[in-house]
Design a protein around this nucleic acid. Structure first.
Lengths: 350, 350
DNA sequence: AAAAACAACGTTAGCGCTAACGTTAAATTG
DNA sequence: CAATTTAACGTTAGCGCTAACGTTGTTTTT
């Protein structure tokens, strides 16, 4: 915005400030209120006046102060969002679906990342609520007691995504991490594998990873199989580096393992690369499966079997649900569960 | 926050609102101004009074309204940031360095992504400036004329990052994309390669990709080599899929190509996977280099030679520079150029 | 011990905008 | 053609907070 000189003539040269509606109004010969109306759609201003005002606004380089507008109208236009990590293709897809879905409405995403830490989530949720968002979207259904209280008392729609919490705060848009993993186990068992390992990450931090492991264990037990071939990395989320390291541990300890299921595609890729370096052929000597349907697993050689949880769809659905809630269309909290799909690829095909 | 009943007794049950400083003050037996002081550090309030106020605030579940506070103090606490894409490990690293560097100061990042589109950047910059950020960070130095004018007249520090623009708006924190690519060419030439190809993306959209290609061409010419073995994908940014497709085109047209340099690690990975599917051995039959030092290129088999531009460092330096500018320590715009480093790996080793 | 400095509060005003309620003239109605 | 409605504005007040400036009682200075 351009700057107009301050009312205080003495310091006009030194103290400048962005143009206000009053400045625009003065230049256009109307009241500030008319400027306010002219800059919004569906308000009664004559075409002639509106044009005059738009011309004046352009001349001053005026941009409305959304904070002041939100303050006065008690509608900030913010939607707060927390994700565990920004460097994750899955959450990025969700975020894109969400922001794209909100773009038309003028709502703006206020983002923060928790680094897979519930204490950090609490700090973040508090910071975000101070901006008085109109709704808050949190990734995951596991919170500190104080964070839960903050969400419950916020007085705005709360959406927990990427999870299927037993005791949701409000609205849920997610899927069953355990159920998704069971699908992979079914696939591996159908391929004739019985000695199946699991590579995971620090379960106290990565709750979704924990749920995936639980689903793995339960599905194996349904088939009467043992589930002890499990290696967890000490950090969360585990990535390619940990995938490679954990695969080494798993193969050293249980050399006759036939298949490995991994908590994410990144871990799967690291594990597969380690297998290849050890001279194992995938899938002939060992099958490998990931989770998340990253681009990576499609273009790896061999391509990696994975689970597509519909990350972008979660974002789009979340956006629509936020809009519905703010319009008052859906007064009651809802629970929307998407169905993950197995994508069978070379890394586990017989 | 908890809600206190509205002043209007009639609708107390229906109309509720978040607690305000006045509510906290009333409960603690002090004025709202004292509450304001008690909730900030370095303001003169007695320990006893501060404790009383904190107790009252806790009881009411009071969270300060940052928008109102920013409005009154004319310091919103926002730093606006635009990046081309959220689904990109490099920009994610920069963003993390930036947010982490700003965390202590209480400044909050207001993020938007341009989708590699200058028109979208213009729309985004305008939207962000309406929130009256205290500084704005834009990725790249290429803008529409109107966007440039918006940035120039914003009256706040403007930081252009990830680039080395000829005519910067204000402060620059980046590197030379062309110079970084020249380093890779030097490496490939030193390995004895003369027939070197390039895989890029739509140059009208991906300006940094264009600069990388320019650096490639110039470096080849310095060695008296031809630079016609070039394939551009129609979209930007090109990713694994386009890397694979473009590699096919390049190999079909120039089967005797000895080395391929790619505009990013993702393209390099796609290209390498395509080479492997065609039965070519990397690096024996063909060398491949990427750009960006993604985790991917470290764990690929073979590991991929790449350029580390110091994405996280850019973010950290940007945060520090923003803080310096807002403190008034660095009144003059500066130009900070980092030095990209080649990481030689298996994919191009002889 | 009077003067000055300071700590610890309260009061007043206003940040830039919009909701709610005027007001006026023109358009519509019976 | 008077009565009513409506379009197109202006006026007033206030959103929740903080800057700036009181005011009071206590401590420090010379």
């Amino acid at each position: 915005m351009l700057f107009v000189s301050d009312n205080n003539q003495e310091f006009a040269a030194l103290k400048t400030r962005p143009a206000t509606m009053a400045d625009v109004g003065k230049l256009a010969g109307v009241s500030p209120m008319t400027v306010s109306r002219a800059l919004r759609p569906d308000t009664s201003v004559s075409t002639k006046t509106r044009e005059k005002i738009e011309k004046a606004a352009k001349e001053l380089g005026y941009l409305i102060d959304s904070n002041a507008a939100g303050f006065a109208s008690r509608r900030t236009g913010f939607v707060a969002v927390t994700i565990p990590s920004i460097n994750n293709a899955n959450f990025a897809d969700t975020l894109r679906g969400l922001t794209d879905g909100l773009k038309q409405s003028g709502l703006q995403v206020l983002l923060g990342y928790t680094n897979y830490d519930v204490a950090e989530e609490e700090r973040l949720v508090e910071q975000l609520l101070k901006r008085r968002p109109e709704a808050i979207v949190v990734t995951g259904g596991n919170h500190t007691p104080h964070c839960r209280a903050l969400l419950q008392n916020a007085g705005i729609p709360v959406l927990e995504i990427w999870d299927d919490p037993a005791d949701p705060v409000d609205t849920v848009i997610g899927f069953s991490n355990a159920g998704a993993c069971a699908l992979i186990v079914e696939h591996l068992v159908a391929q004739g594998h019985t000695r199946i390992g699991f590579l995971g990450s620090d379960e106290t931090r990565d709750r979704r990873g924990k749920d995936r492991h639980l689903g793995f264990v339960e599905a194996l037990e349904r088939h009467g199989l043992v589930s002890d071939r499990t290696i967890f990395s000490a950090i969360a989320p585990s990535s390619m580096r940990e995938g490679a390291a954990c695969a080494t541990q798993l193969l050293d300890r249980w050399p006759d393992t036939q298949a490995i299921m991994c908590v994410s595609d990144l871990v799967a890729f690291g594990a597969m690369s380690q297998c290849q370096r050890r001279g194992l052929k995938v899938p002939q000597d060992i099958a490998i499966c990931g989770f998340g349907a990253y681009d990576l697993s499609e273009f790896a050689v061999p391509a990696i079997t994975t689970i597509d949880v519909g990350a972008g769809q979660i974002g789009a659905t979340t956006a629509q649900t936020v809009l519905d809630r703010l319009m008052g269309n859906t007064p009651n909290p809802s629970r929307i569960l998407l169905t993950p799909k197995v994508i069978v690829r070379e890394s586990s095909a017989s």
